[in-house]
């Protein structure tokens, strides 16, 4: 296992540099930030001065060299927009996103395993139809409907929950629910599909004939076999959330990395964008290593489960 981890981490170093370089170059293809940061009536001299001050007049490779040396000294530059260190902005926003994504994925996975298995237990039954239909319908709705309708109903009309913000446990309900819908719907479908196949496999009959209880059959034997595809998809969905839940963060005023990233792209705040992508990239790489490790573990256990 340790060798596996070491090799994976080593092989992730180069792709990480590619990501940094890519974002650095792509960002600079999106136009001159001077237009945004100087008043409309600024003179050409002021614009040239601005570009010189921030190094935008240098050749790209010189800029990137400077940036890399800075990064090695853990200096991620200063935000053009807010005049604070880019690292501060990113390290403040990222935990907010992680918390939200974590809570959402835990609920989505638990819910999807239960509902998906229940639906798969009797494929094509009424229960299956209802579960599949509801979850896919929910998953394919525009998320801002849920967000805005949720606010109008539960915050404005009923007064049960706050409209937005981050204060108190109640403020988590609407963002998490809005965020939950799509991963939940997708996972229910994936779990259901994999479970249908798993439950009809011969070894399930074997397990049953040995007198294993239904709960043990479904969640012990079948689920373990159905887990790999669900795990991959869940991993990708988590990656999507780590990259930021822009709609939810925008509507509920959640100070997360998604909103920060969008703002820094649209506002050409390169230092913040680069720092944000670096942090999310590291997280995504780490997450994928964890998923692969889970696979390896699951794989050996699956084999044991089948042979013994």
């Amino acid at each position: 296992m340790l060798t596996f981890l070491r090799r994976r981490i080593a092989s992730s170093a180069l792709p990480l540099v590619v990501v940094i370089l890519g974002v650095f170059c792509l960002a600079r293809l999106t136009g001159d930030p001077g237009n945004l940061y100087l008043p409309l009536s600024a003179t050409p001299e002021m614009r040239a001065e601005f570009a010189a001050r921030h190094g935008f007049d240098q050749p790209l490779f010189v800029q990137f060299g400077d940036y890399l040396t800075q990064v090695f000294r853990l200096d991620f530059g200063e935000s053009l927009r807010t005049a604070e260190p880019a690292a501060d902005a990113v390290l403040r926003a990222f935990p907010a996103t992680l918390q939200l994504a974590g809570a959402t994925m835990i609920l989505a996975i638990l819910g999807a395993v239960v509902v998906g298995s229940w639906a798969a237990y009797r494929p094509n039954s009424v229960a299956d139809r209802v579960a599949s239909f509801t979850s896919t319908t929910a998953a394919s709705m525009p998320d801002f409907w849920f967000a805005i309708m949720g606010v109008l109903v539960f915050a404005v009309a009923l007064g049960w929950l706050p409209t937005s913000g981050t204060e108190g446990a109640a403020a988590w309900v609407l963002p998490v629910l809005t965020l939950l819908i799509r991963p939940f719907g997708v996972l229910v479908q994936v779990v259901r599909g994999a479970m249908v196949t798993a439950l009809s496999a011969p070894y399930i009959k074997v397990a049953r004939s040995k007198g294993a209880g239904e709960v043990r059959v479904v969640f012990g034997h079948a689920l373990r076999n159905a887990a790999p595809p669900a795990l991959t998809v869940a991993g990708d969905l988590t990656v999507g959330l780590v990259n930021g839940a822009v709609v939810v963060e925008t509507i509920f005023g959640w100070p997360g990395i998604g909103k920060l990233m969008i703002t820094s792209i649209l506002q050409r705040d390169f230092a913040v964008l680069q720092a944000a992508v670096l942090v999310t990239a590291i997280t995504i790489f780490a997450l994928n290593i964890v998923i692969d490790a889970c696979y390896a573990l699951l794989d050996s256990r699956v084999r044991q489960g089948v042979t013994t």
Binding site: S12, P15, V18, V19, G22, V23, L26, D236, V239, N243, G244, M261, I262, I265, V277, T280, A281, I284, F285, N288
Partner: peptide, 9 residues
Amino acid sequence: DVILSFPAL
């Protein structure tokens, strides 16, 4: 991994 790390926007 690299593609996933890039913001699509």
